[in-house]
Design a protein around this nucleic acid. Structure first.
Length: 271
DNA sequence: CCCAACTCCTGGGCGC
DNA sequence: TGCGCCCAGGAGTTGG
């Protein structure tokens, strides 16, 4: 499940190869989730950026290609179209300087991913992106602003983190890891200012470590070069239900919180 | 506006 | 070996 570190890793790999390329040809899966891909033909590409778990590729005609990898989405750049029954869209790109030709491919087994082409900055059709909270490493995100944003909702803290509103880019893995580090029970609905600060520190720490390790590969995730990340070796709680807490030895608990498997230590993360 | 419930998808793991 | 069942879960949609 690509979260911020996985999407950031992919962005860093492909952004330099796409810049200034011209879209010559495109094809996509017929589903409305992917079919807008073809609207990009004729455009010249700018610099890809990441916002939360979304990849955004601006064009010189004031539009943007918006990609979301969902659960099993993969992005790669090739010199020849890959034979792949799960390829949901591809774009043939030409470099106007040296006439070199490459393909940008979007593959997604489970089709939870999405491809949109929008006018620049117009994200009304992408509600999560439209109301996305601050980037974790943005200077405007402080312990105080984070705490004030969390206070506005009375939903469980785990649910709030996954909503993308208090902070962008956090998914199930990094949410559980950060809550464990900050010693916060995932079911609490309100936390104090000081604990909010600890949680923000923990989130930044686990996300930065995830980026440094090239992402977490549990099963499906691969970077744009087809390689696995190594952050799965660093996980403290995710996927370790029933195993001992690495801090106190207590058997880790797991339960569904708003239909998401959540793992935590009942001793270290008391209500 | 907020929120809860439901939906989308398919490979892989499991029990029998 | 193979069948049926269930699981993984981010974000869009819908209705209250």
């Amino acid at each position: 499940m690509p979260e911020l570190p996985e999407v950031e890793t992919i962005k860093r790999q492909v952004a330099p190869q796409l810049e200034a390329m011209t879209v010559e040809e495109s094809a996509s899966h017929p589903s409305a989730k992917f079919s807008q891909a073809c609207e990009l033909v004729g455009a010249n590409l700018g610099t890809m950026r990441r916002r939360g778990k979304f990849l955004i590729l601006p064009t010189d005609d004031e539009r943007e290609l918006v990609l979301h990898l969902g659960m099993t989405g993969k992005v790669r750049i090739t010199t020849q179209l890959t034979e792949d029954k799960y390829c949901r869209a591809w774009w043939k790109l030409r470099n106007p300087k040296d006439q070199n030709e490459i393909f940008l491919e979007f593959s997604d087994v489970r089709r939870f991913g999405r491809i949109k082409v929008v006018d620049r900055g117009r994200y009304e059709t992408l509600p999560t992106l439209h109301s996305m909270g601050p980037e974790p490493f943005d200077a405007t995100l402080t312990a105080d602003s984070f705490w004030k944003n969390l206070k506005r909702s009375n939903r469980k803290i785990k649910t709030q983190l996954l909503s993308q509103k208090p902070i962008a880019g956090v998914g199930n893995i990094y949410a559980d890891e950060a809550l464990w580090i900050a010693k916060i029970n995932p079911k609490v609905t309100q936390i104090g200012q000081k604990r909010a600060g600890h949680l923000l520190d923990a989130l930044k720490k686990v996300l930065q470590k995830g980026i440094d390790n090239g992402g977490t590969t549990l099963k499906d995730y691969r970077d744009a070069d087809g390689n696995k990340g190594t952050n799965q070796r660093q996980l403290m709680v995710y996927g370790r239900s029933g195993e001992p807490c690495l801090l106190c030895g207590t058997e880790l608990t797991s339960a569904q919180i708003d239909a998401r498997t959540t793992t935590w230590c009942k001793n270290c993360q008391k209500r």
